[in-house]
């Protein structure tokens, strides 16, 4: 069973009276444990596709199945819950909560699961150690470098052990060295921990690390 099945997906945005088609009859499969890079010019719909896979957005027509679950069947609360269990998001601008420490940021997704505070803290700590930040638990985002912030974000993405990681330009805001570290981490998550990764990127160096590269142009796959 494929981790991600996209079938004939159309996504149309409506602005004022105009209809803007972003994705136009897209289909693709991503196998379990795959590491896919999505590339393409601005406005090609890469981020939109990522959002659709992650259940952040809904298709205009077509279907998406992730881990066998039909996303069109899930709405509202159920969709949110599903997402917290099956998907980990990594953003270009990290999107950490500035008033929470690194540890607390990573604990956040676990608040949605029933467990004792002690267990939560422990799991978050383990996740942070995994990304190499075991000594920065009490630091606030403003006290961390860009690369460190992204690592905290990754720890947050994996703490609830989702099967799929969706990364939107994860190295877009980082320098060469930090970017390399992040990509190493992603490779490790894919190789050692068998996470399926879909990564949107502009950076050819980043794309190199993936198993497959898909090109998106004007809403359709072009290779």
């Amino acid at each position: 069973m494929a981790a991600v099945e996209v079938r004939n997906v159309r996504k149309v945005y409506r602005r004022d009276a105009q209809e803007i088609p972003v994705l136009d009859g897209l289909s693709l499969d991503i196998a379990d444990g795959d590491f896919v890079a999505l590339m393409g010019p601005s406005g090609s719909g890469k981020t939109t596709l990522l959002n659709l896979i992650g259940g952040i957005d809904t298709v205009t027509s077509g279907s998406i199945r992730v881990g066998g679950d039909d996303l069109s069947r899930l709405t509202g609360r159920a969709l949110a819950r599903w997402r917290s269990r099956h998907i980990g998001f990594i953003f270009q601008l990290y999107n950490l909560i500035p008033v929470l420490t690194a540890l607390e940021n990573v604990e956040l997704p676990l608040l949605l699961v029933r467990m004792s505070p002690k267990e939560r803290r422990e799991r978050a700590r383990v996740a942070l150690e995994l990304v190499g930040l075991g000594d920065r638990l009490k630091h606030y985002p403003r006290q961390l470098s860009g690369g460190q912030e992204q690592r905290v974000a990754i720890a947050r993405a994996v703490v609830s052990d989702p099967a799929v990681l969706l990364a939107d330009e994860p190295t877009g805001d980082l320098d060469r060295k930090a970017a390399g570290e992040i990509l190493d981490l992603l490779e490790r998550l894919n190789g050692e921990y068998k996470k399926t990764i879909v990564m949107v990127t502009h950076d050819p160096h980043a794309a190199e690390r993936a198993h497959r590269v898909l090109h998106l142009e004007k809403g359709v796959l072009s290779n």
Partner: peptide, 13 residues
Amino acid sequence: TREIGVLLTLGFS
């Protein structure tokens, strides 16, 4: 705004 988006993404209702 973005922070709220993240919270919703993480799965908070």
